[in-house]
């Protein structure tokens, strides 16, 4: 009888500890203020059997130092690469950016269809509309930044008004500040959480 009671107390204590520890990062999140702001993060839903998916988002660097998006994690894929895609002379060309994507001080860079994107490689499961998926972005200076991707339909080839917009984003290190990102980036701002992990 006493034994049973002790067991119960132990279990509730353990559960309590787990609950407290899982809350800790969430409270840290509200205190930190990363100079990297993320908005409009989304991933394109995938056909059954697809092993890759494209991820898109808007990144603003509010610091006075240049930064680089060098990697990311995504729970539904084995790996993530930072890519650039272009359709030039009817040919689709996709390249990994080996040094990542530079975001100059004060600049906003939009990862969007027909341009820069995150390539989720080796999907463990299909990505369906309605899913929201938490991942992280890795920046050279700002460290790890959390991101929540919403899922958009398979038909989201490009955002409204961006049909041929990729032509203007030819430089791998272009800082898209002020040009070409205004019209398509004004949604889902509230779904994104920013957080810099203490290193």
């Amino acid at each position: 009888m006493v034994n049973k009671l002790m067991n119960r107390i132990c279990i509730s204590l353990a559960l309590g500890l787990i609950a407290v520890s899982s809350l800790a990062p969430a409270s840290a999140q509200t205190k930190s203020s990363s100079p990297i702001k993320i908005s409009s993060a989304w991933v394109r839903a995938t056909p059954v059997g697809a092993k890759v998916a494209g991820g898109y988002l808007t990144i603003t660097n509010q610091s006075s130092k240049s930064d680089r998006l060098i990697g990311a994690t995504f729970p539904k894929s084995a790996r993530v690469e930072v890519h650039e895609m272009k359709v030039v002379d009817e040919v689709m060309r996709m390249r990994q950016l080996p040094d990542g994507l530079e975001i100059k001080p004060g600049a906003t860079v939009v990862l969007k269809p027909g341009s820069y994107h995150l390539m989720f490689i080796g999907l463990h499961e299909q990505i369906k509309v309605g899913h929201t998926i938490n991942g992280t972005l890795e920046f050279k200076n700002a460290g790890t930044v959390r991101v929540t991707f919403k899922t958009r339909g398979l038909g989201q080839g490009s955002m409204p008004g961006h049909g041929k917009a990729h032509q203007s984003m030819k430089q791998p290190n272009a800082h898209g500040s002020g040009s070409g990102h205004g019209s398509g980036s004004g949604h889902d701002e509230k779904t994104i959480t920013n957080h810099k992990h203490p290193k």
């Binding site: 690469e81 359709v87 040919v91 689709m92």
Partner: peptide, 30 residues
């Protein structure tokens, strides 16, 4: 085209519309 842990393939993104004798009639752009 190789990437870090995989590869991708550059390819023509145009759809060709072919006639009854297998000749090209028109195209659909991406």
């Amino acid at each position: 085209v190789p990437t870090e842990g995989s590869y991708t393939i550059d390819h023509t993104a145009t759809t060709y519309l072919m006639g009854r004798k297998g000749q090209m009639v028109s195209t659909l752009a991406y």
